[in-house]
């Protein structure tokens, strides 16, 4: 029982980051119908920004965090402007490959300018602290991440439900053409979607980097994959589903790690991928997909 609770907390700490990324991917999918394989690059950029200001400039974490956030938002908007704007409305195939290309391009730019090696930066000293409550060992960072994610989600829900921005975004996600005819400006709503997705990724990046304390060209790959998987598990484009998908993925990863026999723990990720492939085979539309009839 304690073990289960422990896994739950660990898993939610992990899953919160996936959920933030998945929500961003879902928001972008909503307005553009594109799965953004470049979403992880926001974390890569953030990682090098963190490295730059913390190690090179000697900033403290609390000062670096807002800059990381701004970097993620800025990168998100820039990528939209440079690449995605030009393929809007193309076939799904084209958009998938476009985002894949951006993913590689950003990675290659970092390999070229910073080298392929790992750059480490110090993590905040409270990140490794552990609270012991009875038999439970709770990592402080998990609590902070879960809390921050909850607040972020609450703000996002408010934005989506109560503001003009959120309403036009949801309208565009529902039916882009109809939303445009009702006066939603397509360039603006897509830019706003990328700002929101960038902001969510920025928050995810702050905590992800606090945990890992590393920057390298491929930093964004693993969180990207988990984010995409979570978004699809939740039913692509379904924002609520993406959040649940992220949390579910985090918890199942931790549970799997504790259940797998010793000699298979090394390939937990492999097992997770296998399970997810199986999941999609039986439920390709995700968990929470609401079927809307295709008009013929």
């Amino acid at each position: 029982m304690i073990g289960l609770l422990q896994s739950l907390i660990d898993g939610l700490g992990r899953g919160s980051i996936y959920a933030l990324l998945a929500l961003g991917i879902a928001v972008i999918f909503g307005v553009m119908h594109m799965v953004n394989f470049a979403h992880g690059e926001l974390i890569t950029v953030s990682a090098y920004v963190a490295f730059g200001v913390i190690v090179t400039a000697g900033w403290a974490w609390w000062a670096a965090a807002p800059l990381i956030f701004v970097a993620a938002v800025g990168t998100s908007v820039a990528i939209e402007f440079v690449a995605f704007r030009w393929v809007r409305g193309s076939s799904d195939f084209t958009m998938l490959l476009t985002s894949f290309a951006v993913h590689f391009l950003v990675q290659a730019i970092f390999v070229m300018t910073m080298g392929a090696s790992v750059r480490s930066f110090p993590r905040p000293d409270w990140a490794d602290r552990v609270w012991s409550v009875g038999d439970l060992n709770i990592q402080v960072i998990d609590v902070v991440v879960i809390g921050a994610t909850a607040v972020t989600m609450a703000v996002t829900v408010y934005l989506l439900q109560r503001t003009m921005f959120g309403i036009s975004l949801r309208a565009a996600a529902e039916d882009f053409d109809a939303a445009r005819l009702m006066g939603v400006r397509s360039n603006k709503v897509i830019r706003q979607a990328f700002i929101l997705a960038g902001a969510l990724a920025g928050i995810a990046a702050i905590f992800f980097l606090m945990r890992t304390g590393q920057a390298r060209p491929t930093t964004g790959l693993s969180p990207l994959l988990k984010g995409i998987l979570a978004a699809i598990i939740g039913g692509l484009g379904n924002m609520q589903g993406a959040v649940y998908g992220g949390l579910l993925l985090g918890v199942s990863e931790v549970l799997l790690r504790s259940w797998l026999p010793e000699d298979l723990v090394g390939i937990t990720d492999g097992v997770v991928f296998a399970l997810i492939a199986l999941f999609f085979i039986f439920r390709p539309q995700g968990l929470l997909y609401v079927r809307s009839a295709e008009r013929v």
């Binding site: 084209t94 476009t98 290309a101 590689f104 070229m112």
Partner: peptide
């Protein structure tokens, strides 16, 4: 520096998707 080849590859992919998918 190393990485140039990857930039050319990624750039080609992006360019072709945008201009000649």
């Amino acid at each position: 520096r190393p990485g140039l080849t990857d930039i050319v590859l990624g750039g080609s992919m992006l360019g072709f998707m945008i201009f000649k998918a």
